[in-house]
Simulated assay, not measured.
Amino acid sequence: MSTTHVLLGLLAHGPMHGYELKRSHDQRLPQAKPVAFGQVYATLGRLQRDGLVTTSGHDQAGGPERTSFALTEAGRARLDEWLSEIEPPAPFVTSALFAKVAVAVLVSGEARARDYLVAQRAAHMERLRALTLVKTDPESSLGDVVAADFAILHLDADLRWVANTLDRVADLHREVQS
Rank of each mutant, 00 (worst) to 15 (best):
A122D: 09
L29H: 15
E87L: 08
P34G: 05
E139N: 13
D80H: 06
R129P: 00
D149H: 12
T43F: 10
A42P: 00
H17I: 00
R23K: 15
D115T: 04
L166E: 07
S68Y: 14
F69T: 08
S95R: 10
L10A: 13
A36S: 07
H173V: 09
T3V: 11
E73Y: 10
S108Y: 05
K33P: 00
P88V: 03
V101N: 08
D137C: 06
V134F: 12
S141I: 01
P91C: 06
V107A: 14
H58W: 06
S56G: 14
L47W: 02
P89T: 02
M1D: 03
L83S: 11
D167E: 13
V105D: 03
F69I: 07
L142H: 13
R78Q: 13
D156E: 14
L7C: 10
V118F: 01
E73C: 00
H13W: 04
E126V: 04
L131M: 08
A12W: 00
F92G: 02
D137N: 15
Y19W: 10
S24A: 15
T132Q: 09
L131N: 04
R112W: 04
T43I: 05
L11Y: 11
L83M: 09
V93Y: 07
R174A: 14
Q60A: 08
T94D: 13
E175T: 10
V162G: 03
H13I: 00
D167K: 08
L117S: 14
F69K: 03
Q27F: 15
D137A: 06
F37A: 15
L159G: 08
L29I: 08
A123H: 15
A123K: 14
G109F: 07
D171P: 00
V176P: 00
A148G: 13
S84L: 08
A163V: 04
D167Y: 02
T4L: 10
A122H: 12
G75E: 01
T54F: 02
A77D: 11
Q39H: 14
E126S: 09
H124S: 12
P88H: 04
G18E: 01
P91V: 05
H173S: 14
A74S: 13
P34Q: 02
V53W: 03
R114E: 15
D144H: 14
